[in-house]
Design a protein around this nucleic acid. Structure first.
Lengths: 107, 107
DNA sequence: AAAAGTACCTTGCGATACAAGGTATTATAA
DNA sequence: TTATAATACCTTGTATCGCAAGGTACTTTT
């Protein structure tokens, strides 16, 4: 059965949204994001996350700043920009639409 | 802004699930599916749908039968198989999980 | 016969998650 | 003091999949 594949596909498109939701609450660096999403039962791989963050930054939706760490190399903390917050609002709407669609089809 | 792109990504993984939800209610041929999903505010293109249906059929989740039409060539009506219903149950669970995740992150 | 409508399918492209591997900086241990 | 481990960032190659565009075949209408 390739249900795992489909399940992975379902989560795929949500990743960007979930990460922006996270960053809406507070600035994070990569490992923060991975851990927090894991707590929320959403798995993300490093090789997925770094390019995604770079992409969002290049699109102007995220900014970042370096911060020293007491336990290793400095970390890149990402934050939602104003554009990012606007985009997040639109994704909220998209999520609502998809939710409505699924619930409509389930009934 | 590439919000449209992200939105499309979000829908990506849901398509398969939505189509199986539809076929759980009744057998459909391609245009049925396109129309019904449109009513549910989910757009699907032909070039997306046909390969998707073939894939699900090859995975044993769908079966089909030809039926005559009064208004043109015969139509391929797809139906969920037993395996398909089982897979759908698992996707229901996946959807619940994703829903929980998003709502958790939104709070 | 020719044109329009309906239905199925394929090809080429772009986007993206993931696995694996790579580089650099800092902390720890020998 | 040097070697190893840990932390953190990033890149490359592969597979999947939605989408736009184009193609074939059958049926109905003109």
């Amino acid at each position: 059965m390739n249900t795992d594949n489909t399940k992975s596909q379902m989560r795929k498109g949500m990743l960007e949204y979930c990460i922006m939701l996270l960053l809406h609450q507070q600035s994070c660096y990569a490992n923060d994001i991975i851990q927090r999403l894991q707590e929320a039962e959403m798995i993300v791989m490093e090789g997925t996350l770094y390019p995604l963050l770079s992409r969002l930054k290049n699109d102007g939706l995220l900014g970042y700043e370096w911060r020293e760490s007491t336990q290793g190399p400095p970390r890149k903390y990402y934050t939602l920009t104003a554009d990012g917050q606007e985009a997040l609002s639109q994704l909220d709407a998209s999520w609502e639409e998809i939710s409505r669609t699924v619930n409509f089809l389930k009934s």
